[in-house]
Design a protein around this nucleic acid. Structure first.
Lengths: 152, 152
DNA sequence: GAAGTATATTTGTCAAGGCAAATATCGTGG
DNA sequence: CCACGATATTTGCCTTGACAAATATACTTC
């Protein structure tokens, strides 16, 4: 598969920089899209709700690990999301140290909007990539991630 | 009670998440590598020095735009980098509002270490990708970035 | 079952970056 | 020249996330 933009490469941005730029554009686009729908959520909060919606109730620690967020930061995000009424801290049945974090009805109702919104942003971002290219992009990034994590 | 799906995360991480994970691993690796060489620099500071080394002296505003950093944040980073002796704020010859930011000899000397370090980290990150795949990855990311910036 | 270790949550502290206001200077159109 | 809007830098304020300490509870080992 020949690609024209390989023939005229942009002034060489290093991978680290490029990743940062793309990510911050995606975050910006998502937050703007949400705000336009009247939903005031930061990207991190979107990620938290997404995990809960997809994986079901779990403890705050599991949630923190799932979104790679510090435990302390998670406590404060949960404060906010609970305050907005999207989730609830319930006592954990087997472990009295832990919490069972679950979406409220309102949180579940919001979820459809969030996932649609995410869909639109990712579609827009990748609109110049073919289906195959999208798969490759995902595959490459996954392999890079593994390379970085499994040192050697 | 541990949620098994957290141990083996779903194969499909969304692009936004994946980008964040890869970037934060690269940042972590770079900072660790630098620290191991006795150089205490944050990734942002590395980027600033990199721009200066590659593009030569410029104003603080130009530098801020080049690394996509807020002007206020740039002022504070310059304070630190000037304090460490890596750069210098000189008066701008044509514009008395502006500064001419330039690397010191020490800053230039550091540069070779930084670029070698960056080289090693990126090589390690992409070690499982062929030369062609690396080019494609870069190309895809560049196209995604353009798609996000040039709204339709 | 007691002691010691590991884990869950919360809270305090800190650095970084975004945004807005303040100040200085530039450049342009009367 | 003068007023006015744009730009450069700095500073203050706010939010976020990392890290560490404190507290409560679970688990493991003897």
């Amino acid at each position: 598969m020949v690609n024209e933009s390989l023939v005229h490469p942009a002034p060489e941005e290093s991978l680290g920089v490029l990743l940062g730029l793309v990510r911050s554009e995606i975050v910006r686009a998502m937050e703007a899209e949400l705000a336009a729908l009247g939903v005031e959520l930061r990207f991190t909060q979107f990620l938290i709700l997404k995990r809960l919606a997809r994986l079901g109730p779990m403890t705050a620690s599991e949630l923190a690990r799932a979104v790679e967020l510090d435990g302390g930061a998670m406590t404060r995000q949960l404060d906010q999301l609970e305050g907005k009424g999207y989730l609830r801290r319930c006592p954990h049945e087997q472990d009295r140290r832990a919490l069972r974090i679950e979406l409220t009805n309102e949180g579940n109702a919001l979820w459809q909007q969030l996932t649609d919104c995410n869909e639109r942003v990712l579609e827009a971002a990748q609109r110049s990539l073919s289906e195959t290219e999208r798969k490759h992009l995902h595959d490459y990034l996954t392999r890079v991630l593994h390379a970085l994590r499994d040192k050697d």
